[in-house]
Amino acid sequence: MKITIIAGARPNFIKIAPIINAIQKKQNEGLNISFRLVHTGQHYDKNLSDTFFEELNIPQPDVNLEVKSGSQAEQTAAIMVAFEKELIQNPTDLVLVVGDVNSTMACSIVAKKSHTKVAHVEAGIRSGDLTMPEEINRMLTDSITDYFFTTSTSASENLLKLGSDPQNVHFVGNVMIDTLYQNINRISAPDFWNDHQLHEKNYIILTLHRPANVDEVSSLIELLHGIDLLVNDKKIIFPIHPRTQAILKESKTDFKNIIFVSPQGYLNFMYLIKNSFAVITDSGGISEETTVLGIPCFTMRDNTERPETETIGSNTIVGTALENLKTVFGSFLQNGARKSGIPDLWDGKASERIISILLDKK
C-alpha cells in the first residue's frame, strides 16, 4: 500500500509525526506499506516548518512544493497546480491529509479529481463559524473524503448526520496527543527560562493569531493591556510573530507583566505549557494539549471545533470581549480550576489505529 502524506503548516507537522512512526512500525513488522511525504510549503518560516521536522524526527520531505504565501485563493490554487503535477509523476493508492489548513482542502480536491482515495485525519470537527477559513476547508474536505478518522464521538456524529458511510467513519482518538505522549520526556526549557526567572506555575501562556485580535494595532494594544492587568503576581509569556512585535514597539507601549518571545519550537512550547499556571489563547488546537496536561485553558473565541475540551472541563470558551475574560478568569483565580479529565481514546495510540484500519481496507 502506497500512501502520500500531505503536510503544509505547523499543526500538520505535529499530526503527521506519529502517523509516520506507525507506518514505519508496520514496515518493521514486514507489512507492505510505504509513504511519500509531500510538504506543500504553505508555512516556510524555519520556526514554523523545519524546526518541527528536526524536533519530531520527521524524515525530510520527498518533495517541497514551495507554494509559500498569498491570498486564500492564490495559495490554494498554487497548491493545487503543484500537487497535480506531483501526483501525476508519483501515483499513489491513497492521499492522507490532516487538519484543516489550505493544503488539506487543496490536495484532497486534486486527489479526488485524479481518482485517488482520500483519508482525512481529524475529520468531522466543526465550529459552526463560516467566517473561519478553516471551517470551509473542513467542510469541503469531508464532503469528498473516503475514509474519516475522528478525534471524538461528536465529530463522528457530525459526519453521520451529513450522510457519510458509517463503515468509513472511525473514531480513533487524537494524533496530536500521540505526539505529546511520544515526546513528553524530551521537552525542554527554552533559552529564556532562567533569564526571566520562570518556574512552575509562576507564569501564564498567551497566544493570539486570529486576524480580529492581531491585525488592528489599537485593538490589540487594548486587549494586551487588559490581559496585562488580569494578575499582578504572574508573568505572561507571549510568543509573538516578529512582525506584530515590531508594530507594537513602534507604538512605544509598555506592559508590566507581558514578556514577548519569538515563536517556539514544539519541545520548548510544550515545556512552557506543561509548567504554566494557565493558558489564554484564541487557538483551537492548544486546548487539546492543555487538556491532557491538566492546564486550565481560556479560549477567546465565541465557538470551538473541539467541544469535548470544554465539556470535560479543561477549556473555557470566554468569547472575544475582554470584559468576559476578566469575569471568567477572575472567577478562576478565586475558585480554582474546574474539575476536568481526558477524552476517550486520547491515549497516544490513535496513529496505530489509523494505519491498522487503512491496511485492512486495502
Results as ranks from 00 to 15, higher is better:
I3S: 02
T4V: 04
A9L: 02
A9P: 12
P11F: 04
P11T: 02
I14Y: 01
K15F: 09
I16C: 04
P18F: 00
I19S: 12
I23E: 11
K25I: 06
N28Y: 07
G30N: 12
I33S: 06
S34T: 15
F35P: 04
F35M: 05
V38P: 00
H43V: 03
N47G: 03
T51Q: 10
E54S: 10
N57A: 15
I58T: 09
Q60W: 00
Q60I: 11
L65G: 10
V67K: 00
S69M: 02
S69C: 10
Q72K: 08
T76G: 07
I79R: 01
M80W: 00
F83N: 02
E86A: 05
D93V: 00
L94D: 04
V95N: 02
V97M: 04
V98S: 07
G99T: 11
T104H: 09
M105W: 07
S108D: 03
S108L: 06
I109M: 11
A111C: 08
H120K: 08
H120T: 08
D129T: 12
T131Y: 00
E134D: 11
E134F: 10
E134R: 05
L140A: 13
T141E: 03
D142V: 04
I144Y: 05
I144H: 07
I144F: 06
Y147S: 10
T150Y: 08
S152F: 04
L160H: 04
K161N: 12
K161G: 05
Q167W: 03
V169W: 07
V169Y: 09
V172Y: 15
V175P: 13
V175D: 10
Y181D: 02
Q182N: 15
D195Q: 15
H196Q: 14
Q197W: 01
H199N: 11
K201V: 05
N202I: 09
I205M: 15
L206S: 04
P211E: 12
V214A: 01
E216T: 13
V217C: 03
S218T: 13
L220H: 05
L220F: 05
E222S: 14
L223R: 14
G226N: 02
G226Q: 10
I227M: 07
I227A: 00
V231I: 07
I237R: 04
F238L: 14
P242R: 05
P242D: 07
Q245V: 03
Q245Y: 09
A246C: 03
A246Y: 01
E250C: 05
F255R: 10
V261F: 00
G265R: 02
Y266T: 09
Y266P: 12
F269P: 02
N275I: 01
S276E: 07
A278C: 12
I280H: 13
D282Q: 10
G285H: 10
E288F: 06
E288R: 09
T290C: 15
T291C: 14
L293D: 08
P296H: 09
R301W: 11
T304F: 14
T304S: 12
E305I: 13
E305A: 11
P307E: 09
T311I: 00
T311S: 13
I312C: 02
G313I: 03
S314K: 07
T316F: 06
I317R: 04
N324M: 01
N324L: 06
F329L: 13
F332L: 07
L333F: 08
N335Q: 14
N335D: 11
G336R: 05
G336H: 03
G336I: 14
G341S: 15
W346H: 13
A350V: 05
I354L: 09
I357E: 14
I357S: 10
I357D: 11
D360W: 06
D360F: 12
